[in-house]
């Protein structure tokens, strides 16, 4: 049965040094925030813990199934943004879906993104 949970609103920032290191690895053009950089903000240990809680088991690995980014305005380096994240659980097949909206308070989000992770069970006792 699908279940959805609001994980909260978090302050995020594309620090210039982190964005530059990311850009070097992906060959991103320009001196701005790399297009896919915000995925970094979804790699939080507390989101992983929330997924373990929703799945009710830790013996699995997530496999990235799909991803989207929809920018209404570019993000600025070294600026604070509010990111609101919800996590949805699907069971047939087993998935976790993260939806995030990034923007400045009281304005339309600059970015929405969605990450779908397929949950692949591991043999008992082999938690990743």
């Amino acid at each position: 049965m699908p279940a959805e949970r609001l994980l909260g609103t978090f302050t995020v920032r594309a620090a210039a040094a982190e964005a530059a290191a990311f850009a070097r690895e992906v060959g991103s053009p320009g001196q701005s925030v790399p297009f896919t950089f915000p995925v970094r903000w979804l790699a939080r240990p507390d989101f992983q813990a929330a997924a373990v809680e929703m799945i009710g088991d830790a013996n699995w690995v997530p496999i990235h199934e799909s991803q989207s980014f929809d920018y209404r305005a570019p993000l600025t380096l070294d600026a604070d943004y509010a990111m609101t994240v919800t996590m949805k659980r699907e069971t047939e097949p087993s998935r976790i879906i993260l939806s995030a909206y990034v923007g400045v308070a009281d304005e339309a989000p600059s970015l929405s993104m969605e990450m779908t992770l397929r949950i692949v069970p591991l043999p008992a006792g082999q938690a990743a």
Binding site: V26, G27, P29, T36, Q67
Partner: peptide
């Protein structure tokens, strides 16, 4: 992440606004 530089090299006069992918 490979799509952004590929598109920028193809049409540097345009800006990538949306990208969705299935693996």
């Amino acid at each position: 992440s490979a799509f952004a530089p590929a598109l920028a090299a193809w049409r540097p006069d345009l800006t990538l606004q949306r990208l969705s992918a299935k693996f």
